[in-house]
Computed example of a mutant assay.
Amino acid sequence: MKKIFCLLLLVAVVKLNAQGFKAGYSYFDDNKWTEFSVGNMPLVISVPHGGLLMPPDIDDRSCPDIVTAHDSRTIELAKAIDSVFRRDYGFYPSLIICNLKRTKIDQNREIEIATCGNEAMKVPWNYWHNMVDTAIAMATKKYGQTVYIDLHAQGHPHQRLELGYLLKTAQLKELSTGNNDTLYTAKSSLHNLIYGSKGKLNLKQMLTGSNAFGTWMTESNFPSVPSQQDPFALEDEKYFDGGYNTARYTKYPNVFGWQIETNYKGVRDTPSAYFTFAEAFVKNIMRYIATYTDIDVKKIGK
């Protein structure tokens, strides 16, 4: 399986060299359904459900078990993160944005459910995921490691960030007691980072320790689960644990990350909130890279 992922990254590198993507520029497919904003740091952010385009000649998805809810203002949020990186550091992440509404395509599902079998829509599905592959290939080729974030929005009653590491509520609860760290490490979206540390890191520390990303975001006034302050959602609380994209891309060698489900109030409700959140995210993701990876942060963007 690992050989397959290595081959996918190799193909993406070939595509990258052939197309001549340059950092700081945005590239689109012919219909502008996908935007690939090329970064120059070891961070790739995908935004699969923020689009609003509804081409009338494309049928709405209609097949069993689909979800069509729109992740409002997540594109604006991703671009605010990009702007803060550029302003504060002079470098920036890669952004892969789907501009199509989720009623037409779901870029966080495998291809058949994503398109409901519409052959024409398999083209933009493949294009979008090829751009994620390319962005990851660029970052890992230059830096050796890459953080991957799949950015979403949630409308649950609790106004907090839901960080999805591919572990369900019951598993997070069990992990918080100190059990099954080894088992859940293998299942989690941080397995590449933890295994690569050769015993220096453990999953419980990474999710609910004093230096967990969720803990830092909570201390930055963005309550998060899991975190030291809120290690797991309660049984009657909704929680998104991560989807297709997180599972797919954190299997790639030297890639690790998580899904972020952003709440509305104080994050997506106003333009000023976008930037307040972006500033906290940028500060803490840089701290994360400096603390947990082998990347020399002084050389990022150079």
Rank of each mutant, 00 (worst) to 15 (best):
K79Y: 04
D88Y: 01
A18R: 14
S62C: 11
G20I: 04
G51H: 04
L53V: 04
F21P: 03
V44L: 09
R87W: 02
V84K: 08
E76W: 05
L53N: 00
A23F: 11
N40S: 07
A78Q: 00
K2S: 06
F36V: 02
L77S: 08
N40W: 05
V44R: 01
S26T: 14
S26G: 12
V14I: 12
H70W: 03
P42N: 12
M54P: 00
K2D: 15
I81V: 13
V14N: 12
C6K: 15
K2P: 02
A18T: 07
G51L: 08
A69Y: 04
C63T: 08
D59L: 11
F5W: 14
L43Y: 07
K22C: 06
G39M: 13
L10A: 13
T34G: 04
D82S: 03
G20Y: 09
N31R: 14
H49K: 02
I66G: 05
V84C: 04
A78N: 05
G24N: 13
S72M: 06
K32S: 15
A78P: 04
D29K: 07
E35G: 12
V67C: 11
T68R: 08
I45E: 01
V11T: 09
F36E: 06
E35D: 08
L53D: 03
K22I: 07
A69W: 11
I75G: 01
P48S: 11
Y25I: 11
P56F: 05
S62D: 05
D57P: 01
L52G: 03
C63M: 03
L43C: 10
L9H: 06
A78S: 08
L16A: 10
P64Y: 09
L10W: 09
G20L: 01
G51Y: 05
L8F: 10
D88W: 08
V14Q: 13
D88I: 00
H49M: 13
D71W: 02
